[in-house]
Design a protein around this nucleic acid. Sequence first.
DNA 1: ACAATAGTTGACTAAATTAATAGGGTTTAG
DNA 2: CTAAACCCTATTAATTTAGTCAACTATTGT
Lengths: 161, 161
Amino acid sequence: MRLTTKGRFAVTAMIDLGMRQQRGPVTLAGISERQKISLSYLEQLFGRLRRHGIVDSVRGPGGGYTMARPMVEISVADIIRAVDEPIDATQCGGLGNCHDGHECMTHELWINLNEHIYRYLEGVDLASLVETQLSKQAEAGSRKDERRVLGTAELKAVVNG
Amino acid sequence: MRLTTKGRFAVTAMIDLGMRQQRGPVTLAGISERQKISLSYLEQLFGRLRRHGIVDSVRGPGGGYTMARPMVEISVADIIRAVDEPIDATQCGGLGNCHDGHECMTHELWINLNEHIYRYLEGVDLASLVETQLSKQAEAGSRKDERRVLGTAELKAVVNG
DNA sequence: ACAATAGTTGACTAAATTAATAGGGTTTAG
DNA sequence: CTAAACCCTATTAATTTAGTCAACTATTGT
């Protein structure tokens, strides 16, 4: 498991999509403008998301992207897996052609760590992220001058759902 | 927070170090050979680890590296932070010069996720990783001929949890 | 004390991978 | 038929990873 800006962009874009898809397909051009992510880059990312069955596309005018399944069933891990592609982090190519116990060490260790991080990200679903974001936005709208910043404790609560 | 092979190499090397430092300073040449990581690359990594006060170096013959503090007090997060360096993942440079609610979205979201992953990795200390590894090694030593190799399906299962 | 040796340190370079951009092609509603 | 959208592929730019080389430092054997 790799964690880079690519995955971050993808998650951000997916949240944007989640916030608007009720009004029909969402265009990449819109996401691009709102989130300040280059259109061509978004196209690449959504190509992958589509091929992984996470989003559906509608072509032609009035088209765009929608979620392929309920947002509760889409985890951050799904998204990152889709855009960040395979990677084997072990010398031995993941197929155990290690020669002594030591070489295998790296192997197992990272498989374990991977599993842990995945497990965590698997537990964070898009629905809750979108909900958080929507409520935050609504709140900000109701009192514009008093711009709000979350404290650390609050942040934790938010992320944990 | 970024998660790449660089951090993985660093953690692997640190575990190797942890498994041997009781017999005095451990040389990078040894780690290099055992873990199959290029010596020069290790030098770079340990330069950073040293500057971050995670390891101490002893120069001259019989020299090498040792932990700068008890392994229980060294977390995976510490190691990754040391080698993977700065990064701000937000458009607005992390200083909140965002102009509207949307731009800030990315910002907060990723700060939250970062914090979480860090918190998790902060909870994994080197001592336990080393211990696991040592016991696993001992176990392998007791039954040498029955070398076990995972099949692809098994691997998949392991990785996916 | 002196040379040889084992080891770290840091600067620089090259290769490989990733991220991002650009520019065309394809489908479809109106 | 045309404009709005997705869809692909190639190219460029940036970052990471890896490797090289030449000091510098401390120990040890003589």
